[in-house]
Design a binder for these strands. Structure first.
Length: 591
DNA sequence: TCAAATGGCGCC
DNA sequence: AAAGGGCGCCATTTGA
């Protein structure tokens, strides 16, 4: 059974009234939700209405409908659910039309187009497709530096055609027909059904994690900043330690250099005899010059200062929590992205600041070496699957064919998955091919498909984007009889480039499949653990904030969910995808 | 003068 | 030691 849920709308807008007004002075609330009121209707599994539509004024009233194994149906979790969470309404399951549509459209070769219920209906009717209201797709980017986040684009005029197409006045019908359309297109593909269920569940988890926030000790963070950078500078000034290093750099070169400018820095090194064409740290590290040390130190501090300095703290940490806006499926491979705050790039150095509340612990669980294990599964490489029984797959790999050299084994495996052909990794390819032929056929086959302009899919059927017009044209020109050498080279480069992408896609996207199923399963199980909250998820790692006495139980649940994910995503495979949870007070102590 | 591109680097 | 996949974000540079 489905419970179709639509925020009440006015003039085609999500009605809310409390979050401000758009340029026309009409109240808007891009989250939908609180205070708004909802239309609600029960639907059978095939989308047939089971009763008359209802109107619910108080969202808490929705709870009366929950808990019957029903699945909520709505346009976009990111629009509806945060408002519900703010008034204390948590729901178990949903079907998110927008997230589902993205996956289905991708499988049809279409990316980046509107995916709302309105869009689904408009397409089915051959009518103009309205823009998404979902910020995730209309979001045009953020203002730089220390400004406020850019606002998503909002409708600022009433468009009668769009509003009719959008079914304003009968939003439930819109959801119902979109659902029926999607169910029909999804067919009876079990893997796809699992992917779609996990994607919608990820939407719920993402909203909940955004709501909960990651415990963040601003005082600890500030201490770390002062320790590394010195005192917080006045606006427009460098922190003490960075200013000192800048002076050291000038002195080492013997002339003034702006280390914030790559152009300036490269020119400086050239002037003192080093013909570099990039100022990347690893290049500079190899130079013998007194400026090297202060430059490297400066770069590191500058990164900390600009990415996670005092400004970041002021903008993103409130009430002891860091709240990122998570975007499930925000990456083509199905990985999550975040809007703002760099939520998936928290530097290791700052993990000291992630501390459980008093009486609570953090259960930090990560899937060890997920990607090579996933490769073993999708390629059905029995030799590699056997190695996956080892807790440390790279150790096993090293013992199996790399003379016990773990670093070498890891390099070879990563090179195989990323398409590295040169250097040490390239030289190790023959060893891999000899010992793990099926795995290598898998990644090399995926690469070849990419090179020839085809698409590839994840284990559960997430599709990679088809090549763009530039690629197709370059390939056509470069492979024609009368192509110039330059045209041939260009075509070859673009093909190789896309080959590396598709090669990696099959592994990364299948790992994302696994992780989404893992996360969804754990989220479901955590509902039975009082006080346990998912607070962080980063590709193959998650954190649960939990009352200390429940930490052991939650650890078990993370492992059980991993086992279940392995069985669901790679049924019948001998691969193992172990998770090793650690109970800590502070994130920095997890590794 | 402003927006887009680039260089660089953090995370996986 | 060398530089291969996916991102987001910042400051600087470029170019319209």
């Amino acid at each position: 059974m489905f419970l179709a849920l639509a925020p009440r709308t006015e003039n085609g807008r999500t009605w809310a009234g409390t979050d401000g007004a758009d340029s026309a002075g009409v109240p808007v609330n891009r989250r939908g939700g609180d205070g708004a009121g909802y239309h609600l209707q029960e639907l059978a599994d095939d989308g047939e209405p089971l009763g008359d539509p209802l109107t619910i004024g108080d969202p808490v009233g929705l709870l009366a409908f929950a808990g019957r194994g029903a699945r909520w149906l709505w346009d976009a979790t990111s629009q509806v659910y945060p408002g519900l969470l703010r008034v204390g309404v948590r729901l178990d399951r949903c079907h998110d039309i927008t997230l589902t549509e993205r996956i289905l459209r991708a499988r049809a070769g279409v990316f980046g187009e509107p995916s709302s219920a309105a869009a689904v209906n408009a397409r089915a009717a051959g009518a103009p497709v309205p823009a998404d209201r979902d910020p995730a797709t209309t979001f045009a980017g953020r203002q730089s530096a220390f400004g406020h986040p850019a606002q998503p684009m909002l409708f600022d005029t009433v468009d009668p055609v769009r509003d009719v197409v959008a079914g304003v006045g009968d939003p439930l019908a819109l959801l119902r027909t979109a659902l029926v359309d999607q169910l029909q297109r999804a067919g009876d593909d079990n893997a796809l059904a699992l992917l779609l269920a996990a994607e919608s569940a990820s939407g719920l988890a993402a909203a909940e994690m955004g709501h909960a926030g990651l415990p963040w000790r601003a005082d600890v963070h500030r201490e770390l900043l002062v320790q590394g950078l010195g005192q917080q500078p006045a606006a427009g000034r460098r922190p003490t330690r960075m200013a000192e290093l800048a002076r050291e750099i000038d002195a080492a070169f013997g002339f003034p250099v702006n280390p914030d400018s790559a152009v300036d820095l490269r020119a400086a090194f050239r002037r003192v005899g080093f013909d570099i064409d990039t100022t990347r740290s690893w290049v500079i590290k190899g130079l013998a010059h007194p400026a090297v040390e202060p430059v490297l130190a400066y770069k590191e501090l500058a990164r900390l200062y600009s990415a996670n300095g005092w400004n970041w703290l002021a903008e993103w940490v409130r009430d002891g929590r860091f709240r990122a806006e998570y975007v499930p499926g925000g990456v083509v491979s199905g990985r999550w992205a975040t809007n703002g705050g760099g939520g998936l790039q928290i530097p290791r150095a700052l993990r000291r600041a992630v501390v459980a509340d008093p009486g609570y612990a953090l259960v930090v669980a990560d899937a060890a070496q997920l990607e090579p294990r996933v490769l073993a599964a999708i390629s059905n490489d029995h030799a590699l699957q056997r190695l996956s029984a080892d807790d440390d797959l790279y150790d096993a790999l090293a013992a199996d064919g790399f003379g016990g050299d773990r670093a070498k084994a890891k390099l070879a495996m990563l090179g195989a998955m990323y398409g590295q052909t040169s250097g040490e990794a390239g030289r190790l390819v023959p060893t891999l091919r000899r010992r793990y032929p099926a795995a290598m056929v898998c990644v090399e086959g995926a690469a070849r498909q990419g090179e020839t302009g085809q698409v590839v899919h994840s284990a559960l059927g997430r599709a990679c984007p088809p090549p763009g017009a530039t690629f197709r044209e370059a390939l056509e020109v470069g492979t024609s009889q009368d192509a110039t050498d330059a045209e041939r080279r260009r075509a070859d480069l673009m093909a190789k480039d896309r080959g590396r992408f598709t090669r990696n896609f099959v592994v990364q996207a299948s790992a994302a499949d696994w992780a989404a199923v893992w996360l969804s399963g754990l989220r479901r199980d955590l509902a039975a653990v009082p006080g346990a909250e998912l607070v962080f998820f980063q590709h193959d790692e998650l954190i649960v904030h939990v009352p200390t006495e429940q930490a052991g139980l939650v650890s078990e649940l993370t492992m059980a969910a991993a086992k279940s994910a392995r069985e669901l995503v790679f049924p019948g495979s001998a691969v193992t995808t172990p998770v090793r949870p650690v109970v800590v007070n502070c994130y920095a102590d997890a590794k």
